[in-house]
């Protein structure tokens, strides 16, 4: 466990807990994409299948339970809590997430390390996590405004992914048997940046790139936040309301 990974887990924890607490206290989910929350609940469910069979550490198990609990609670609030439900913007949150789930499932069935149910489900969760934020980013682009609830949520998620990449780089240099993925990944990241930040292109490219490896999906996921970070920091610097360009 290195400092980057611990910091990454903490920012990931903060992002989900801040979202859950805010929805619980102000009883509103304005600006939050239910599709993204459902995708995250699916990511955690398919990734933590081994929560009761393989014990890594108390920290690992507790964090898994918190992530599972918080993601399902957020989905429950947005689907069944009568007050919260009213503030859900279903007219704009129309990203057909089956277009994300199916390609990731097919990719996981084609490209994995071993053909076992747990391994394929784990690979599927890695691919899906990379694109799970897309409905939320599309919703932000459509509604054009970002109230601080969603802004902080996406910001902390982006911070979590960036710290995880630092964690991978750190492990690459400290653990000898780490894979030599930096070269391929960095090469494709350059290509990715050349394509620009429109969501649709991001979606196509990111699904395409997932085929390379689980590492790639981590990188792709972080790159998806790149343009959001750019706008978020600019708005924070100029102290203006954050609006995203089309």
């Amino acid at each position: 466990m290195n400092v980057f990974r611990l910091a990454g887990d903490m920012t990931h924890l903060i992002s989900v807990l801040v979202l859950l607490l805010k929805i619980h206290t102000i009883k509103s989910c304005a600006g939050v994409s239910l599709k993204t929350q459902e995708l995250y609940a699916l990511v955690f469910s398919t990734r933590y299948l081994d929560i009761f069979t393989d014990f890594t550490s108390l920290y690992n198990t507790v964090m898994k339970l918190i992530f599972l609990g918080s993601s399902f609670s957020i989905v429950w609030y947005m689907r069944h809590h009568k007050l919260v439900q009213r503030s859900y913007d279903k007219d704009h949150d129309t990203f057909r997430h089956q277009f994300l789930v199916l390609p990731c499932l097919i990719l996981a069935l084609l490209i994995h390390e071993q053909f076992t149910f747990k391994e394929v489900m784990w690979t599927f969760s890695i691919y899906l996590e990379a694109v799970a934020i897309l409905p939320q980013l599309v919703l932000l682009q459509r509604t054009r405004n970002i109230d601080n609830l969603t802004g902080q949520y996406v910001f902390f998620l982006g911070a979590y992914r960036s710290l995880y990449i630092l964690n991978w780089i750190y492990r690459y240099f400290t653990e000898p048997h780490y894979v030599h993925w930096i070269s391929t990944t960095s090469m494709f990241c350059v290509v990715l940046f050349c394509f620009g930040f429109t969501i649709f292109k991001w979606y196509l490219i990111s699904v395409l790139l997932l085929t390379l490896s689980a590492w790639m999906s981590g990188f792709v996921q972080t790159l998806l936040y790149a343009d959001f970070f750019y706008y978020y920091i600019n708005s924070w610097k100029n102290n203006v309301k954050l609006t995203l360009q089309a």
Binding site: H12, D54, E113, E119, W122, H177, Y178, W181, S213, A214
Partner: peptide, 10 residues
């Protein structure tokens, strides 16, 4: 293998 390395991560 890659995925074993990543398994101890969340």
């Amino acid at each position: 293998e890659d995925s074993e390395l990543l398994k101890d991560e969340l």
